[in-house]
Structure formats: structure tokens, C-alpha cells
Amino acid sequence: MPKIIPVADELSKTFWDGVNDKRLILQHCAACERLQYPPKPACQFCGSGEKLEWKDVEGKGHISTYIVIEDGRLNRRMPDQPYNLALITLDEDTSVNFYSNLPGVPPYEVPVGSAVEVMFEEVAPDQLIHEWKVVG
């Protein structure tokens, strides 16, 4: 079913361009060696704006926990209900997390703790979003 379509802005354009190229690229602070997602104008840890660069990440993670959306408020997603909404921590930096609907995993049957890897899903012509699939 159709998902909501993200609209890139000046700050997020590089990220979404990467996703549309099937790459997961996050902000990386060269000053304090930390990853940052979602993007911000400056590093949230050391405050540096000049040392922020974009870095490809491997796209591997684990499922931390999840909920099942049974009566959400987003009109476009209502036909999907119930659907999983999992919290994915990135292996390269577990302080970074993402949402995932875990395509292919039936509602309520989420294997918490399992390894996942990034995949890309079309939500509109020329617009992908990053999703995650269970591996192993």
C-alpha cells in the first residue's frame, strides 16, 4: 500500500539523493567521529558545522523493539493497518536509529533482536525510502 512521500529540503537533499541511488549516507562529524541522523545544520555532539561531511554506511542493524499500528492517524497508511513499526539500531553506531515497517514480516511476528539490512522501497515515481529487511 502507498506510503507517505518524503519531501526533501536543503538540509536533507543529499540524504534523499543518496537513497534514490540506493545508498545510505549519513552525516559524519570529522571532529568527533560521530554519525548523525536525521541531518542537522551542525554536529549535535560537538557543535561543529564545518566538519560535517556525508559518509556511506554499511546499512546493517538490529531490531531493538517494535509496535503494531492498529489505529494510527495517517490517512494514507490506514489501509495497511495493522502494520509493524520497528525500531532499528545501526550496527556502526547504535546511537543512531531508524524506523522500519519490516516488509515481508507479518504483523505481530517481529523477531526482536534479529539482524537486518537496509533495502530501498519506491513510494512515488523517482522517490525511494530506506527500509530494512530481516537477514539470516
Binding site: 507517505i4 518524503p6 519531501v7 526533501a8 529540503d9 502494520y83 513499526l85 524506523y99 515497517n101
Partner: peptide, 11 residues
């Protein structure tokens, strides 16, 4: 800010 959450269902 919604671009980071709404596509997956967080309102």
C-alpha cells in the same frame, strides 16, 4: 521533521 517519521507511520 515529518519526512523522517511519517513515511513509516509515525504521526
Amino acid at each position: 521533521a515529518r519526512q523522517w517519521v511519517a513515511p513509516w507511520g509515525n504521526h
